[in-house]
Design a protein around this nucleic acid. Structure first.
Length: 260
DNA sequence: ATGGCGGTGGAGCACCGA
């Protein structure tokens, strides 16, 4: 089973990229972030015609997450628990029923947190606390669980081409990294580091200043696995070439293969 | 480098992203 995550930076701008990538990568499940549209204009029909079931949580202009699956989606949960006043569309979770077993998947768009001297940074950290609380409950289920998405966290200096540029940034602040570490410490495995412990690889390159050409990237898109999922991990791939297509997203797809 | 790009809403340019 192949599971992917991709921040598309507007689904309507990127629909051709998505369909092209789906046909070449053939993922079974895809977690999308930054849809930047409301549910009613999400191009569900086009995606369904490619053989995917769709669960969407969109909003006007900003954020927005979705799960695509070749297998039926059940128990769809929209929104991260813990703050009824938080209306930002950043979390959707579903159970995928595969003939060989059940997989619970979440598509996560964790807040950016910049600028750090505004309310945006505490919102990010509070959101991470809520994610940790929710993940605890999910891990108790002892299921095959994949928490995939744009975490907006650079976990270690290895995950940035120029870590010194990020020291005052919400993506690399000690508080953000510690919280990400605490999330993993619940028993979640960073699938990319499981397969490539020491390799400098990135999932995002800024549009500006020729960041892609200079490989000035960061790794912020992650697939975290429960023990039941990690034991089935066979491979990880960052589909970097998509960043060089015409009018790309600034993020590229990351995908894993699980033996089931 | 002084966000230098790109997307959104809405018809200017502010706001957001990372």
């Amino acid at each position: 089973m192949r599971i992917a995550t991709w921040n598309v930076n507007s689904i309507r701008q990127r629909l051709e990229h998505l369909t092209r990538w789906l046909s070449e990568a053939q993922p079974d499940i895809v977690c999308l972030q930054e849809l930047k549209c409301m549910d009613e204009v999400f191009p569900a029909g086009e995606i369904e015609s490619l053989g995917y079931n769709v669960a969407v949580s969109g909003q006007k202009t900003f954020n927005g997450v979705a799960i695509l699956s070749k297998f039926p989606l059940e128990d769809i949960r929209i929104g991260l628990p813990g703050d009824a006043n938080d209306l930002q569309a950043r979390y959707i979770e579903a159970v995928v029923s595969h003939p060989n077993g059940v997989v619970r998947v979440a598509s996560i768009y964790l807040p950016n947190g910049n600028p750090v001297d505004t309310e945006k940074f505490p919102y990010k950290l509070a959101w991470m606390d809520r994610l940790i609380s929710h993940a605890k409950g999910l891990l108790d289920l002892e299921e095959i669980l994949v928490l995939a998405g744009d975490y907006n966290v650079i976990p270690t200096p290895l995950d940035a081409r120029h870590p010194e540029k990020w020291v005052n940034d919400a993506l690399f602040k000690p508080e953000s990294r510690e919280s990400f570490q605490n999330l993993k410490a619940l028993g979640l495995t960073d699938s990319l580091r499981q397969c490539l412990p020491d390799e400098a690889v990135y999932t995002f390159w800024d549009y500006q200043a020729g960041a892609r050409q200079r490989n000035d990237g960061i790794r912020i898109d992650h697939l975290l696995l429960s023990p039941e999922a990690a034991s089935k991990l066979t491979s990880v791939c960052i589909d970097e070439h998509v960043r060089d297509w015409e009018k790309p997203s600034d993020h590229v797809p990351v995908m894993i293969d699980l033996a089931l």
